[in-house]
Design a protein around this nucleic acid. Structure first.
Lengths: 229, 229
DNA sequence: CCGAAATTGTCACCGCCACGACGAACAGCG
DNA sequence: CGCTGTTCGTCGTGGCGGTGACAATTTCGG
Protein backbone atom coordinates (compact mmCIF):
# COMPACT_ATOMS: atom_id res chain seq x y z
CA UNK A 1 0.00 0.00 0.00
CA UNK A 2 1.43 3.37 -0.95
CA UNK A 3 1.65 6.28 1.46
CA UNK A 4 -1.24 8.30 0.10
CA UNK A 5 -3.56 5.37 0.27
CA UNK A 6 -2.47 4.54 3.79
CA UNK A 7 -3.15 8.06 4.95
CA UNK A 8 -6.55 7.83 3.40
CA UNK A 9 -7.39 4.78 5.44
CA UNK A 10 -6.00 6.33 8.56
CA UNK A 11 -8.26 9.30 8.07
CA UNK A 12 -11.27 7.07 7.56
CA UNK A 13 -10.38 5.25 10.76
CA UNK A 14 -10.24 8.47 12.78
CA UNK A 15 -13.67 9.36 11.54
CA UNK A 16 -15.13 6.32 13.17
CA UNK A 17 -13.94 6.88 16.69
CA UNK A 18 -11.38 5.47 19.03
CA UNK A 19 -9.25 2.96 17.23
CA UNK A 20 -8.04 1.45 20.46
CA UNK A 21 -11.49 0.48 21.56
CA UNK A 22 -12.18 -2.23 19.06
CA UNK A 23 -9.28 -2.57 16.63
CA UNK A 24 -10.30 -2.91 13.02
CA UNK A 25 -9.43 -6.11 11.30
CA UNK A 26 -7.03 -5.78 8.38
CA UNK A 27 -9.10 -5.15 5.31
CA UNK A 28 -12.01 -3.55 7.13
CA UNK A 29 -11.06 -0.08 6.06
CA UNK A 30 -10.38 -1.08 2.48
CA UNK A 31 -13.80 -2.67 2.39
CA UNK A 32 -15.43 0.48 3.68
CA UNK A 33 -13.60 2.55 1.10
CA UNK A 34 -15.01 0.30 -1.60
CA UNK A 35 -18.57 1.06 -0.52
CA UNK A 36 -18.53 4.62 -1.78
CA UNK A 37 -16.69 7.38 -3.57
CA UNK A 38 -15.63 11.00 -3.20
CA UNK A 39 -17.84 13.98 -3.91
CA UNK A 40 -16.87 17.67 -4.05
CA UNK A 41 -19.27 20.47 -3.22
CA UNK A 42 -19.03 24.20 -3.83
CA UNK A 43 -19.96 26.64 -1.06
CA UNK A 44 -23.71 27.11 -0.84
CA UNK A 45 -24.62 23.80 -2.48
CA UNK A 46 -26.33 20.98 -0.64
CA UNK A 47 -25.00 17.53 0.20
CA UNK A 48 -28.57 16.52 0.91
CA UNK A 49 -31.86 18.18 1.70
CA UNK A 50 -34.45 17.64 4.38
CA UNK A 51 -37.12 15.23 3.21
CA UNK A 52 -34.99 13.85 0.38
CA UNK A 53 -34.56 10.13 -0.05
CA UNK A 54 -31.65 8.93 2.06
CA UNK A 55 -29.57 6.82 -0.25
CA UNK A 56 -26.24 7.41 1.40
CA UNK A 57 -24.19 8.83 4.25
CA UNK A 58 -21.30 11.28 4.04
CA UNK A 59 -17.96 11.39 5.82
CA UNK A 60 -16.69 14.95 5.70
CA UNK A 61 -13.01 15.10 4.82
CA UNK A 62 -12.47 18.79 4.22
CA UNK A 63 -14.47 21.98 4.65
CA UNK A 64 -17.39 22.96 6.81
CA UNK A 65 -20.98 21.82 6.60
CA UNK A 66 -24.05 23.39 8.17
CA UNK A 67 -26.92 21.20 9.28
CA UNK A 68 -30.31 22.85 9.58
CA UNK A 69 -34.00 22.05 9.70
CA UNK A 70 -36.63 24.19 8.04
CA UNK A 71 -39.71 24.95 10.07
CA UNK A 72 -43.08 26.48 9.37
CA UNK A 73 -41.40 29.83 9.83
CA UNK A 74 -37.66 30.25 9.23
CA UNK A 75 -35.01 27.62 9.91
CA UNK A 76 -33.10 26.24 12.86
CA UNK A 77 -29.43 25.50 12.60
CA UNK A 78 -28.85 22.15 14.26
CA UNK A 79 -25.08 22.16 14.04
CA UNK A 80 -21.90 22.80 12.14
CA UNK A 81 -19.46 20.03 11.41
CA UNK A 82 -16.00 19.77 9.93
CA UNK A 83 -13.66 17.05 8.80
CA UNK A 84 -14.21 13.71 10.44
CA UNK A 85 -17.94 14.07 10.96
CA UNK A 86 -20.34 11.47 9.62
CA UNK A 87 -23.66 12.91 8.52
CA UNK A 88 -26.85 11.55 7.01
CA UNK A 89 -26.20 8.13 8.49
CA UNK A 90 -29.13 8.26 10.87
CA UNK A 91 -31.71 8.71 8.15
CA UNK A 92 -29.90 6.25 5.93
CA UNK A 93 -29.97 3.47 8.49
CA UNK A 94 -33.58 4.10 9.38
CA UNK A 95 -34.57 4.14 5.75
CA UNK A 96 -36.41 7.41 6.33
CA UNK A 97 -36.03 10.68 4.42
CA UNK A 98 -33.20 12.94 5.59
CA UNK A 99 -34.03 14.66 8.88
CA UNK A 100 -32.10 17.82 8.16
CA UNK A 101 -30.48 19.63 5.27
CA UNK A 102 -26.70 19.74 4.90
CA UNK A 103 -25.23 22.74 3.14
CA UNK A 104 -21.58 23.32 2.32
CA UNK A 105 -20.31 26.55 3.91
CA UNK A 106 -16.85 26.35 2.45
CA UNK A 107 -15.60 24.12 -0.35
CA UNK A 108 -16.29 20.60 0.87
CA UNK A 109 -14.78 17.25 0.01
CA UNK A 110 -16.67 14.27 1.38
CA UNK A 111 -16.74 10.51 1.05
CA UNK A 112 -20.16 9.28 0.12
CA UNK A 113 -21.10 5.81 1.36
CA UNK A 114 -23.80 4.06 -0.66
CA UNK A 115 -26.56 2.48 1.35
CA UNK A 116 -26.92 -0.44 -1.04
CA UNK A 117 -23.27 -1.35 -0.88
CA UNK A 118 -22.86 -0.58 2.80
CA UNK A 119 -25.52 -2.78 4.40
CA UNK A 120 -24.24 -6.13 3.07
CA UNK A 121 -20.78 -5.04 4.03
CA UNK A 122 -21.74 -4.38 7.63
CA UNK A 123 -23.32 -7.78 8.01
CA UNK A 124 -20.14 -9.31 6.68
CA UNK A 125 -17.93 -7.24 9.00
CA UNK A 126 -19.64 -6.72 12.35
CA UNK A 127 -16.70 -4.80 13.81
CA UNK A 128 -17.41 -1.91 11.51
CA UNK A 129 -21.09 -1.99 12.41
CA UNK A 130 -20.27 -1.81 16.11
CA UNK A 131 -17.77 0.95 15.57
CA UNK A 132 -20.32 2.89 13.57
CA UNK A 133 -22.85 2.30 16.30
CA UNK A 134 -20.55 3.86 18.86
CA UNK A 135 -19.57 6.77 16.65
CA UNK A 136 -23.14 7.54 15.64
CA UNK A 137 -24.40 7.48 19.18
CA UNK A 138 -21.49 9.63 20.32
CA UNK A 139 -22.17 12.30 17.76
CA UNK A 140 -25.89 12.49 18.41
CA UNK A 141 -25.21 12.56 22.11
CA UNK A 142 -22.75 15.42 21.64
CA UNK A 143 -25.25 17.57 19.75
CA UNK A 144 -27.83 16.76 22.37
CA UNK A 145 -25.49 17.86 25.14
CA UNK A 146 -24.76 21.03 23.24
CA UNK A 147 -28.44 21.82 22.90
CA UNK A 148 -29.05 21.12 26.58
CA UNK A 149 -26.14 23.34 27.55
CA UNK A 150 -27.70 26.14 25.53
CA UNK A 151 -31.26 25.74 26.70
CA UNK A 152 -32.72 28.27 29.08
CA UNK A 153 -29.63 30.42 29.30
CA UNK A 154 -29.08 34.06 28.60
CA UNK A 155 -27.79 35.07 25.18
CA UNK A 156 -24.57 36.21 26.85
CA UNK A 157 -23.94 32.72 28.24
CA UNK A 158 -24.84 31.11 24.95
CA UNK A 159 -22.50 33.34 22.98
CA UNK A 160 -19.62 32.56 25.34
CA UNK A 161 -20.37 28.87 24.96
CA UNK A 162 -20.48 28.88 21.19
CA UNK A 163 -17.32 30.98 20.94
CA UNK A 164 -15.45 28.37 22.95
CA UNK A 165 -16.88 25.62 20.77
CA UNK A 166 -16.22 27.18 17.41
CA UNK A 167 -12.82 28.77 18.00
CA UNK A 168 -10.05 27.51 15.74
CA UNK A 169 -6.53 26.75 17.04
CA UNK A 170 -5.69 30.48 16.87
CA UNK A 171 -8.70 31.36 18.98
CA UNK A 172 -10.49 32.89 16.04
CA UNK A 173 -14.12 32.40 15.12
CA UNK A 174 -14.80 33.23 11.49
CA UNK A 175 -18.51 33.86 11.58
CA UNK A 176 -20.55 36.97 11.02
CA UNK A 177 -22.73 38.13 13.86
CA UNK A 178 -25.74 37.17 11.79
CA UNK A 179 -24.44 33.63 11.50
CA UNK A 180 -23.87 33.45 15.23
CA UNK A 181 -27.42 34.67 15.78
CA UNK A 182 -28.63 32.01 13.37
CA UNK A 183 -26.69 29.33 15.16
CA UNK A 184 -28.17 30.25 18.53
CA UNK A 185 -31.64 31.18 17.35
CA UNK A 186 -31.20 34.68 18.74
CA UNK A 187 -31.44 38.09 17.13
CA UNK A 188 -28.38 39.74 15.65
CA UNK A 189 -28.82 42.75 17.93
CA UNK A 190 -28.62 40.64 21.07
CA UNK A 191 -25.50 38.92 19.79
CA UNK A 192 -23.95 42.30 19.13
CA UNK A 193 -24.77 43.50 22.63
CA UNK A 194 -23.32 40.33 24.19
CA UNK A 195 -20.14 40.67 22.14
CA UNK A 196 -19.86 44.32 23.13
CA UNK A 197 -20.02 43.41 26.81
CA UNK A 198 -17.31 40.77 26.38
CA UNK A 199 -15.19 43.18 24.40
CA UNK A 200 -15.43 45.77 27.19
CA UNK A 201 -14.37 43.14 29.73
CA UNK A 202 -11.36 42.32 27.57
CA UNK A 203 -12.13 38.66 26.95
CA UNK A 204 -12.53 39.02 23.19
CA UNK A 205 -11.74 41.23 20.22
CA UNK A 206 -14.20 41.75 17.39
CA UNK A 207 -13.60 42.47 13.74
CA UNK A 208 -15.29 42.14 10.40
CA UNK A 209 -16.65 38.59 10.25
CA UNK A 210 -14.27 37.51 12.99
CA UNK A 211 -14.12 37.24 16.75
CA UNK A 212 -10.79 36.64 18.50
CA UNK A 213 -10.84 34.91 21.88
CA UNK A 214 -8.30 36.60 24.16
CA UNK A 215 -9.16 35.08 27.52
CA UNK A 216 -10.79 31.67 27.29
CA UNK A 217 -11.00 31.31 31.08
CA UNK A 218 -12.98 34.51 31.36
CA UNK A 219 -15.31 33.20 28.66
CA UNK A 220 -15.75 29.91 30.48
CA UNK A 221 -16.74 31.91 33.53
CA UNK A 222 -19.32 33.86 31.54
CA UNK A 223 -20.62 30.62 30.04
CA UNK A 224 -21.26 29.42 33.58
CA UNK A 225 -18.97 26.41 33.46
CA UNK A 226 -16.05 27.72 35.40
CA UNK A 227 -16.36 25.11 38.14
CA UNK A 228 -17.78 22.04 36.46
CA UNK A 229 -16.17 20.96 33.20
CA UNK B 1 -41.22 -22.73 23.16
CA UNK B 2 -44.12 -22.04 25.49
CA UNK B 3 -46.41 -19.05 25.09
CA UNK B 4 -45.03 -16.91 27.88
CA UNK B 5 -41.50 -17.27 26.59
CA UNK B 6 -42.59 -16.50 23.05
CA UNK B 7 -44.28 -13.30 24.14
CA UNK B 8 -41.17 -12.31 25.98
CA UNK B 9 -39.10 -12.62 22.85
CA UNK B 10 -41.69 -10.79 20.84
CA UNK B 11 -41.51 -7.89 23.27
CA UNK B 12 -37.73 -7.83 23.12
CA UNK B 13 -37.92 -7.79 19.33
CA UNK B 14 -40.30 -4.81 19.29
CA UNK B 15 -37.89 -2.93 21.49
CA UNK B 16 -35.27 -3.14 18.81
CA UNK B 17 -37.22 -1.67 15.98
CA UNK B 18 -38.96 -2.85 12.87
CA UNK B 19 -38.74 -6.58 12.59
CA UNK B 20 -39.53 -6.54 8.89
CA UNK B 21 -36.51 -4.47 8.01
CA UNK B 22 -33.79 -6.92 8.90
CA UNK B 23 -35.34 -10.13 10.16
CA UNK B 24 -33.62 -11.59 13.17
CA UNK B 25 -32.20 -15.04 12.73
CA UNK B 26 -33.74 -17.73 14.92
CA UNK B 27 -31.74 -17.78 18.10
CA UNK B 28 -30.79 -14.11 18.01
CA UNK B 29 -33.41 -13.16 20.54
CA UNK B 30 -32.68 -16.09 22.79
CA UNK B 31 -29.04 -15.09 22.72
CA UNK B 32 -29.89 -11.51 23.61
CA UNK B 33 -32.10 -12.69 26.44
CA UNK B 34 -29.20 -14.67 27.80
CA UNK B 35 -27.04 -11.56 28.05
CA UNK B 36 -28.98 -10.07 30.92
CA UNK B 37 -31.70 -10.43 33.50
CA UNK B 38 -34.72 -8.64 34.90
CA UNK B 39 -34.64 -5.93 37.53
CA UNK B 40 -37.53 -4.31 39.38
CA UNK B 41 -37.46 -0.76 40.70
CA UNK B 42 -39.73 1.04 43.12
CA UNK B 43 -40.94 4.56 42.34
CA UNK B 44 -38.31 7.14 43.19
CA UNK B 45 -35.35 4.77 42.97
CA UNK B 46 -32.67 5.06 40.31
CA UNK B 47 -31.84 2.63 37.53
CA UNK B 48 -28.55 4.47 37.16
CA UNK B 49 -27.09 7.81 38.08
CA UNK B 50 -25.21 10.44 36.12
CA UNK B 51 -21.48 9.88 36.38
CA UNK B 52 -21.83 6.28 37.50
CA UNK B 53 -19.87 3.53 35.78
CA UNK B 54 -21.86 2.25 32.82
CA UNK B 55 -21.83 -1.51 33.16
CA UNK B 56 -25.09 -2.18 31.41
CA UNK B 57 -28.07 -0.96 29.41
CA UNK B 58 -31.74 -1.26 30.27
CA UNK B 59 -34.74 -2.16 28.18
CA UNK B 60 -37.84 -0.80 29.89
CA UNK B 61 -40.67 -3.33 29.91
CA UNK B 62 -43.17 -1.72 32.26
CA UNK B 63 -43.54 1.62 34.04
CA UNK B 64 -42.23 5.09 33.40
CA UNK B 65 -38.67 6.37 33.70
CA UNK B 66 -37.49 9.96 33.88
CA UNK B 67 -34.12 10.90 32.40
CA UNK B 68 -32.48 14.02 33.75
CA UNK B 69 -29.13 15.73 33.98
CA UNK B 70 -28.00 17.68 37.01
CA UNK B 71 -26.38 21.02 36.36
CA UNK B 72 -24.50 23.54 38.43
CA UNK B 73 -27.88 24.85 39.51
CA UNK B 74 -30.93 22.62 39.46
CA UNK B 75 -31.62 19.81 37.00
CA UNK B 76 -32.86 19.48 33.45
CA UNK B 77 -35.29 16.77 32.50
CA UNK B 78 -34.06 15.28 29.25
CA UNK B 79 -37.00 13.01 28.63
CA UNK B 80 -39.52 10.49 29.85
CA UNK B 81 -39.67 7.00 28.47
CA UNK B 82 -41.97 4.02 28.83
CA UNK B 83 -42.05 0.41 27.81
CA UNK B 84 -39.93 -0.44 24.80
CA UNK B 85 -37.29 2.21 25.37
CA UNK B 86 -33.61 1.31 25.58
CA UNK B 87 -31.67 3.52 27.96
CA UNK B 88 -28.09 3.73 29.15
CA UNK B 89 -26.82 2.08 26.00
CA UNK B 90 -25.02 5.15 24.71
CA UNK B 91 -22.77 5.44 27.71
CA UNK B 92 -22.32 1.68 27.85
CA UNK B 93 -21.10 1.43 24.28
CA UNK B 94 -18.81 4.39 24.63
CA UNK B 95 -17.37 3.03 27.85
CA UNK B 96 -17.97 6.40 29.51
CA UNK B 97 -19.86 7.12 32.73
CA UNK B 98 -23.63 7.50 32.38
CA UNK B 99 -24.57 10.80 30.79
CA UNK B 100 -27.84 11.23 32.64
CA UNK B 101 -29.67 9.83 35.63
CA UNK B 102 -32.64 7.50 35.20
CA UNK B 103 -35.26 7.53 37.92
CA UNK B 104 -38.33 5.31 38.14
CA UNK B 105 -41.49 7.41 38.29
CA UNK B 106 -43.85 4.48 38.66
CA UNK B 107 -43.02 0.87 39.49
CA UNK B 108 -40.61 -0.20 36.77
CA UNK B 109 -39.65 -3.59 35.38
CA UNK B 110 -36.68 -3.56 33.08
CA UNK B 111 -34.35 -5.98 31.37
CA UNK B 112 -30.74 -5.26 32.19
CA UNK B 113 -28.18 -6.16 29.53
CA UNK B 114 -24.66 -6.74 30.82
CA UNK B 115 -21.91 -5.01 28.93
CA UNK B 116 -19.47 -7.87 29.40
CA UNK B 117 -21.82 -10.44 28.01
CA UNK B 118 -23.27 -8.22 25.32
CA UNK B 119 -20.17 -7.14 23.41
CA UNK B 120 -18.99 -10.62 22.41
CA UNK B 121 -22.54 -11.46 21.46
CA UNK B 122 -22.79 -8.52 19.07
CA UNK B 123 -19.61 -9.48 17.29
CA UNK B 124 -20.98 -12.96 16.89
CA UNK B 125 -24.37 -11.78 15.64
CA UNK B 126 -23.97 -8.60 13.58
CA UNK B 127 -27.69 -8.40 12.79
CA UNK B 128 -28.40 -7.51 16.38
CA UNK B 129 -25.70 -4.86 16.34
CA UNK B 130 -27.15 -3.24 13.24
CA UNK B 131 -30.65 -3.42 14.63
CA UNK B 132 -29.43 -1.80 17.84
CA UNK B 133 -27.68 0.85 15.86
CA UNK B 134 -30.92 1.73 14.11
CA UNK B 135 -32.98 1.66 17.30
CA UNK B 136 -30.47 3.74 19.26
CA UNK B 137 -30.13 6.34 16.57
CA UNK B 138 -33.90 6.54 16.21
CA UNK B 139 -34.44 7.18 19.87
CA UNK B 140 -31.73 9.78 20.18
CA UNK B 141 -33.01 11.46 17.07
CA UNK B 142 -36.51 11.54 18.52
CA UNK B 143 -35.38 13.27 21.71
CA UNK B 144 -33.37 15.69 19.63
CA UNK B 145 -36.40 16.53 17.50
CA UNK B 146 -38.43 17.02 20.65
CA UNK B 147 -35.88 19.43 22.05
CA UNK B 148 -35.72 21.36 18.79
CA UNK B 149 -39.49 21.55 18.66
CA UNK B 150 -39.46 23.08 22.12
CA UNK B 151 -36.61 25.52 21.61
CA UNK B 152 -37.38 29.21 21.27
CA UNK B 153 -41.12 28.88 21.59
CA UNK B 154 -43.55 30.44 23.99
CA UNK B 155 -44.52 28.52 27.09
CA UNK B 156 -48.03 28.21 25.71
CA UNK B 157 -46.78 26.42 22.61
CA UNK B 158 -44.50 24.21 24.64
CA UNK B 159 -47.29 23.20 27.01
CA UNK B 160 -49.57 22.29 24.09
CA UNK B 161 -46.73 20.24 22.61
CA UNK B 162 -45.95 18.32 25.78
CA UNK B 163 -49.64 17.64 26.48
CA UNK B 164 -49.97 16.01 23.06
CA UNK B 165 -46.83 13.99 23.71
CA UNK B 166 -47.63 12.78 27.19
CA UNK B 167 -51.36 12.11 26.89
CA UNK B 168 -52.37 8.53 27.60
CA UNK B 169 -54.96 6.69 25.42
CA UNK B 170 -57.78 8.40 27.36
CA UNK B 171 -56.34 11.83 26.65
CA UNK B 172 -55.24 12.29 30.25
CA UNK B 173 -51.89 13.61 31.43
CA UNK B 174 -51.17 12.60 34.99
CA UNK B 175 -48.61 15.18 35.95
CA UNK B 176 -48.68 18.01 38.45
CA UNK B 177 -48.17 21.49 37.10
CA UNK B 178 -44.83 21.56 38.88
CA UNK B 179 -43.76 18.43 37.02
CA UNK B 180 -44.82 19.97 33.72
CA UNK B 181 -42.82 23.07 34.59
CA UNK B 182 -39.85 20.84 35.40
CA UNK B 183 -40.18 18.98 32.12
CA UNK B 184 -40.17 22.21 30.12
CA UNK B 185 -37.74 24.18 32.24
CA UNK B 186 -40.38 26.82 32.83
CA UNK B 187 -41.87 28.23 36.00
CA UNK B 188 -44.97 26.72 37.55
CA UNK B 189 -46.80 30.03 37.30
CA UNK B 190 -46.33 30.26 33.55
CA UNK B 191 -47.58 26.70 33.12
CA UNK B 192 -50.62 27.59 35.16
CA UNK B 193 -51.33 30.63 33.02
CA UNK B 194 -50.94 28.64 29.80
CA UNK B 195 -53.27 25.91 31.08
CA UNK B 196 -55.81 28.54 32.14
CA UNK B 197 -55.84 30.01 28.64
CA UNK B 198 -56.36 26.56 27.08
CA UNK B 199 -59.09 25.81 29.59
CA UNK B 200 -60.92 29.00 28.68
CA UNK B 201 -60.70 28.10 25.00
CA UNK B 202 -62.22 24.71 25.78
CA UNK B 203 -59.34 22.57 24.52
CA UNK B 204 -58.52 21.02 27.92
CA UNK B 205 -59.89 20.37 31.40
CA UNK B 206 -57.71 20.64 34.48
CA UNK B 207 -57.94 18.81 37.78
CA UNK B 208 -55.79 17.85 40.70
CA UNK B 209 -52.61 16.39 39.24
CA UNK B 210 -54.34 15.74 35.94
CA UNK B 211 -55.03 17.46 32.62
CA UNK B 212 -57.63 16.06 30.24
CA UNK B 213 -57.23 16.80 26.54
CA UNK B 214 -60.64 17.56 25.05
CA UNK B 215 -59.71 18.91 21.63
CA UNK B 216 -56.39 17.64 20.32
CA UNK B 217 -56.71 19.53 17.04
CA UNK B 218 -57.07 22.81 18.87
CA UNK B 219 -53.95 21.93 20.86
CA UNK B 220 -52.03 21.12 17.71
CA UNK B 221 -53.01 24.53 16.42
CA UNK B 222 -51.72 26.19 19.58
CA UNK B 223 -48.52 24.15 19.36
CA UNK B 224 -47.99 25.64 15.91
CA UNK B 225 -48.02 22.38 14.00
CA UNK B 226 -51.46 22.54 12.52
CA UNK B 227 -50.23 22.55 8.96
CA UNK B 228 -47.01 20.55 8.97
CA UNK B 229 -47.06 17.19 10.73
C1' DC C 1 -11.37 55.27 -7.08
C1' DC C 2 -16.32 54.74 -6.41
C1' DG C 3 -20.73 52.88 -5.57
C1' DA C 4 -23.45 48.77 -4.09
C1' DA C 5 -23.93 45.23 -0.84
C1' DA C 6 -22.93 43.27 3.38
C1' DT C 7 -21.79 43.85 8.10
C1' DT C 8 -21.48 46.18 12.42
C1' DG C 9 -22.99 49.39 16.20
C1' DT C 10 -26.91 51.58 18.77
C1' DC C 11 -31.44 53.14 20.01
C1' DA C 12 -36.47 52.99 21.74
C1' DC C 13 -40.43 50.14 22.41
C1' DC C 14 -42.74 46.33 24.22
C1' DG C 15 -44.11 41.49 25.13
C1' DC C 16 -43.02 37.27 27.49
C1' DC C 17 -41.70 35.07 31.43
C1' DA C 18 -38.99 34.26 35.98
C1' DC C 19 -39.46 35.35 40.73
C1' DG C 20 -41.57 36.21 45.07
C1' DA C 21 -45.69 36.18 47.55
C1' DC C 22 -50.15 34.78 49.26
C1' DG C 23 -54.66 32.54 49.80
C1' DA C 24 -57.68 28.72 48.47
C1' DA C 25 -58.52 23.97 47.36
C1' DC C 26 -57.35 19.17 47.79
C1' DA C 27 -55.48 14.52 49.65
C1' DG C 28 -53.91 11.78 53.26
C1' DC C 29 -53.70 10.55 58.14
C1' DG C 30 -54.13 10.15 63.10
C1' DC D 1 -63.17 15.46 61.98
C1' DG D 2 -59.31 18.50 62.21
C1' DC D 3 -54.46 18.95 61.01
C1' DT D 4 -50.75 19.15 57.67
C1' DG D 5 -48.37 19.00 53.48
C1' DT D 6 -49.12 19.45 48.64
C1' DT D 7 -51.07 21.51 44.66
C1' DC D 8 -53.57 25.11 42.29
C1' DG D 9 -54.93 29.96 41.07
C1' DT D 10 -53.54 34.68 40.73
C1' DC D 11 -51.30 39.02 41.81
C1' DG D 12 -47.14 42.62 41.17
C1' DT D 13 -42.39 43.65 39.75
C1' DG D 14 -38.51 43.57 36.94
C1' DG D 15 -35.37 41.98 33.38
C1' DC D 16 -34.12 39.72 29.21
C1' DG D 17 -34.50 39.80 24.55
C1' DG D 18 -37.21 40.25 19.94
C1' DT D 19 -38.57 43.89 16.53
C1' DG D 20 -37.98 47.78 13.70
C1' DA D 21 -35.22 51.54 12.37
C1' DC D 22 -31.10 53.98 11.14
C1' DA D 23 -26.21 55.40 10.79
C1' DA D 24 -21.37 53.99 10.36
C1' DT D 25 -18.08 50.89 8.64
C1' DT D 26 -15.96 47.31 5.70
C1' DT D 27 -15.61 44.54 1.53
C1' DC D 28 -15.73 43.85 -3.24
C1' DG D 29 -16.43 44.41 -8.17
C1' DG D 30 -16.16 47.51 -12.08
Amino acid sequence: MDTAEYQHFAWLARSFGRTDYLPLAPGDLEALAAAGSYVDKYPGTHLFKEGGESTGAFVVERGEVELYRTRTVGRRVVGRVRSGAVIGDIAMFQGHPYISSAKAITAVRAFRLERNRLLPLLIERPIIAIRWLVAGLSQLEATQQRVIRLMHRTVREQVAEVLLDEADPFGEVHLSQSSLADLLGASRQSINEALAAMRHSGSIETGYRVVRVLDADKLRFVAGRSVDP
